[in-house]
Design a protein around this nucleic acid. Structure first.
Length: 461
DNA sequence: ATCGGCTCGCGCAA
DNA sequence: TGCGCGAAGCCGAT
């Protein structure tokens, strides 16, 4: 089922004569459980046309490096195989994604894109809508409930978003059938060929002018099949007891699904449905995970939607947070670190260093440690602006799930976004403070340090 | 071990 | 207008 509310027209071109329906894949890099692809297939069937899927591979996506590209391209390899087995053409070409889409849209009767509110893909999409002569729509398939259905404004706290979201959930938490096209694309002639050879993604990545020092990781295998396998493993294991055990860093009672969600290799909808249907877990465990997957995740999508120009800036913090950080701007920092010191994980704090090493070497970090890690950077750098810039930079460079709406919302949480004021103290002002003593009091944090040693060894041996 | 205070702004009840 | 309450906080008092 595809609700009309997922679909937004991006231009008002009249019906167009064309040879196929085109789906320009951007964020939703999957061939199943994808409302945008599904809409394209249904349109094509209604018009008795084949479906073409196009992907433009830019060499210069901000912050992207070998780690991200390998994960993405290995995922796209599976997309290509599955689409082709269903009679859907898949074309992947080097170039700016908007230009690649415009090139293919020349022969399209109808153009579908998947929605993503981050600046660059959004700018590309709006430019394409103007440039093409066929009708174009965007489909929201990254979220369970379309952002504008939940609320028309920025919800400043989870507790204001939560009831609005829950009111819509019964309606939107519905499985989506995957339709096959009735007209195969095999007969299409004269399409621009793929210029990216997905049979050898190692070579493709080696040929790109990107940072190769951030290497692919072994910890998380790329692609939809790996993502679905991880989902099964999560439900069978860590979900059991998730409610009470999710914050213990050494236990890694986490889903590890965020990289797959970030690249769109699996959908939040199918994850939510699978978790909801599980009967081995108790209700508390399922509720705790669904709160994170749905409420907390879609809170950041709401945030980005309503701060299109400054979601990556401290300007969009609530007034109390901006004021209190400014009041403490010149508080002395001791210690005071620069990015190179942080990036080699050589601070005085062994817990922080462990978190940083987990991030650098495995592309991932335990949820709870992400908060501690970010709070300490605020504490240890000269100004909040410098700390924020460094945190976002490291986040987007090393995490497989970086450069996501979640990244911006959650990094800003460190600085008070979606949070509240607490006791005033140096540097932090009234933003929430976190201390190493808290880790020692509540967790077996030394076990986390040892666990990271093992994880790093497994990546580098 | 547990509890209250810290502190702001939103939404709702009245 | 008043009141309750909030992602993971800390800290000191009991």
């Amino acid at each position: 089922m595809i609700h009309d509310t997922r679909v937004t027209p991006l231009n008002d071109r009249p019906d167009n004569v064309g040879r196929y329906v085109l789906y320009w894949m951007q964020a939703a890099q999957r061939s199943r459980s994808n409302h945008a692809l599904e809409l394209a297939i249904r349109r094509a069937n209604a018009m008795a046309l084949p479906v073409v899927v196009v992907f433009g591979l830019t060499e210069t996506y901000p912050d992207a490096n070998a780690r991200h590209y390998r994960f993405m391209l290995d995922g796209l390899k599976e997309v290509a195989a599955d689409l082709s087995s269903r009679g859907i053409a898949f074309i992947i070409r080097f170039g700016s994604p908007d230009e690649v889409a415009i090139e293919l849209a020349g022969d399209a009767a109808f153009l579908v894109a998947d929605r993503n509110d981050l600046r660059l893909p959004r700018k590309w999409r709006l430019g394409v809508a103007k440039a093409v002569s066929c009708p174009m729509v965007e489909v929201e398939t990254d979220v369970i409930v379309p952002v504008d259905v939940v609320s028309h404004k920025h919800e400043t706290q989870a507790r204001t978003l939560r009831p609005r979201l829950h009111r819509q959930l019964a309606d939107y938490l519905q499985p989506m059938a995957d339709t096959d096209p009735e007209v195969r694309a095999d007969g299409l002639r004269g399409l621009p060929p793929s210029t990216v050879d997905l049979t050898d993604t190692v070579r493709v990545v080696a040929g790109l002018p990107i940072d190769a020092t951030v290497k692919p990781v072994r910890r998380l295998a790329p692609g939809r099949q790996a993502g679905l396998k991880q989902l099964d493993a999560f439900i069978a294991g860590p979900l059991q007891g998730y409610g009470s055990g999710r914050n213990e860093p050494a236990a890694f009672r986490v889903s590890f699904l965020s990289p797959y969600l970030h690249f769109g290799q699996i959908s939040a909808l199918e994850v939510a449905l699978a978790v909801q249907a599980d009967r081995r877990s108790n209700e508390e465990d399922r509720k705790a995970y669904l709160e994170e997957l749905i409420v907390r995740r879609e809170l950041t999508f709401n945030f980005v939607r309503h701060h299109p120009d400054n979601y990556d800036s401290l300007d969009c913090l609530p007034g109390w947070a901006r004021k209190t950080l400014a009041d403490h701007r010149s508080d002395p920092r001791d210690p005071c670190y620069d990015i190179p010191t942080l990036e080699v994980a050589e601070t005085h704090d062994p817990y922080w260093n462990a978190a940083m090493r987990e991030m650098i070497h495995t592309g991932f970090m335990h949820n709870y440690m992400r908060m501690y890690w970010g709070k300490k950077i605020l504490e240890w750098m000269k100004t909040p602006e410098e700390a924020f810039g460094a945190t976002l930079h490291l986040n987007n460079k090393y995490f497989l799930d970086g450069r996501d709406p979640n990244s911006y919302g959650n990094v800003l949480w460190i600085y008070g976004l979606h949070d509240r004021a607490w006791t005033e103290r140096p540097i932090f002002g009234k933003t929430r403070y976190m201390a190493a003593s808290g880790l020692e009091r509540k967790f077996d944090i030394k076990a986390y340090v040892r666990a990271v040693d093992r994880l790093v060894a497994a990546e580098t041996n």
